[in-house]
Nucleic acid binder design. Sequence first.
DNA 1: TGAATATTTGAACATTTGTTCAAATATTAT
DNA 2: ATAATATTTGAACAAATGTTCAAATATTCA
Lengths: 124, 124
Amino acid sequence: MSSSRARLIDEDGCQIRVVHLDRVEKARREAISVHELDRLSLTYKVLGDPNRLKIVMALRNVEMCVCDLAAFTGLTDSAVSHQLRRLKDLALVKSRREGQIIYYSLDDEHVSKILNLGLEHIKE
Amino acid sequence: MSSSRARLIDEDGCQIRVVHLDRVEKARREAISVHELDRLSLTYKVLGDPNRLKIVMALRNVEMCVCDLAAFTGLTDSAVSHQLRRLKDLALVKSRREGQIIYYSLDDEHVSKILNLGLEHIKE
DNA sequence: TGAATATTTGAACATTTGTTCAAATATTAT
DNA sequence: ATAATATTTGAACAAATGTTCAAATATTCA
């Protein structure tokens, strides 16, 4: 029997109930760092809003500026700009300036791959 | 020149400023449905919380029960159960009962692929 | 049956989030 | 310079979110 019921003392010294001690320890050993976990969850979170996702989906096909995205989403320029900043902070989109206009596009191939996998998943 | 500045009348009949009309129309043509957009954003949103993500990451390797996940995450059983329900509602995890214990695991290959891509992305 | 364990549920609360509005910045054209 | 356009910024507010707590289910074991 590879996993059996057990008890475990956690960081605070409190005894906590555990069913499969070996599994919990394995999970702890293989866990990513808190920093990576936070970064990864922020990455998904930023895709987890319909309007931001709509923006990102649009950028799969073409480079667009704030005005374009505002027209497409029905949001104000300001709202789009706020959302683009969050997307850029997490390296999901990048931008380049051409005169007054700033063009946004997806940051790299990972982003469109994540979107495609998500689409496949919901279409089952 | 494939795209030039233009104006556009939106659904409300309001004139809205647009820089690249052709791009906006292309984005509109190629947009997924509102239903799909909502479902997709919910899928990412559910991964967008550190504790839920920690749960999902743990389930990449082993099947675990609520107690195991509570021990691993440091959350109460109740909190884990609430989060698992959300994950299950969006088909990110599935469960099977064995006596009193309910074992949770990832729903399908898409989920671990999305996690791997996300990890690759943040590690650049 | 009744006690013990594992999990779920719903309401309540504090925190976080997305949008709006007004004002600021940056670039181009006159 | 000044005006016009494109975008950004910060504060404020309503709405959504995650956790807690207490109580309810579900299953097993004696």
